[in-house]
Simulated assay, not measured.
Amino acid sequence: MRIKDHAAVVTGGASGLGAATARVLAEAGARVTVLDVNEDGARATAEAIGGLGLACDVTSAESVAAALAAATEAHGPARLCVNCAGVVAGGRVVGKEGAHDLAVFSRVIAINLIGTFNVMSQAAAAMVDLAPEDEHERGVIVNTASIAATEGQVGQAAYAASKGGVASLTLPAARDLARHGVRVMCIAPGLFETPMFESLPPDVYDALIKKTLHPHRLGRPEEFGRMVRALVENPMMNGSVVRLDGALRLEPR
Rank of each mutant, 00 (worst) to 15 (best):
F197T: 14
A148Y: 05
H100V: 07
S63Y: 01
G181T: 05
C186R: 00
L171D: 07
P189T: 05
A99G: 00
M185A: 11
A124W: 01
V93K: 00
V88C: 05
V154L: 15
V154K: 11
V58P: 03
V184D: 07
A70N: 00
A123S: 15
V82M: 13
E137A: 11
A188F: 08
K96N: 12
A174T: 06
P189Y: 00
A61E: 13
L80M: 03
E133S: 13
P77V: 11
A148E: 12
A131W: 08
E97M: 02
P195I: 12
A69K: 05
R138I: 07
A173N: 02
S168Q: 10
N112L: 03
V88H: 14
S168L: 09
A65L: 04
K96A: 15
I141Y: 08
G181H: 06
T72V: 07
A161S: 14
A67N: 07
V94G: 00
V104T: 14
G139E: 02
S60A: 01
L68M: 13
R92E: 11
I111H: 04
M185F: 00
A103I: 00
A99R: 10
A158I: 09
V94E: 05
V58A: 06
L68K: 11
A110N: 14
A74Y: 01
A131C: 04
V142N: 00
M127E: 04
E137L: 15
N143G: 08
A188H: 02
M120V: 14
M196P: 09
D134R: 12
L200Y: 12
A125V: 01
H100E: 11
E62S: 15
T194V: 13
E133H: 12
G165W: 08
A67I: 06
R107E: 09
A69H: 04
A67F: 05
M185Q: 15
V140R: 00
L171A: 15
C81W: 08
L102H: 10
E137D: 08
S60Y: 05
I141W: 05
P172W: 02
D176C: 04
F192P: 03
A78S: 15
P189G: 09
A178L: 13
A70M: 01
R183Q: 05
S121D: 09
G164D: 11
S63L: 04
V140C: 12
C81P: 02
V184S: 02
L177G: 04
G86D: 08
V108I: 09
A71R: 05
T72H: 08
E137C: 03
V184P: 01
M185I: 09
P77D: 11
P189Q: 04
A188V: 07
P201K: 07
L191I: 12
V94W: 07
V64E: 12
P77Y: 03
A158S: 15
V142D: 06
M127Y: 10
A125F: 02
K163T: 11
V93L: 14
R179H: 13
A67S: 14
A61Q: 11
H180C: 11
E193P: 06
G115M: 13
A89I: 00
R79D: 10
A167K: 09
V184E: 01
G115K: 14
D129Q: 07
A173F: 01
A85C: 10
Y159M: 07
V154M: 15
P189L: 03
A174I: 03
N112G: 08
T59C: 12
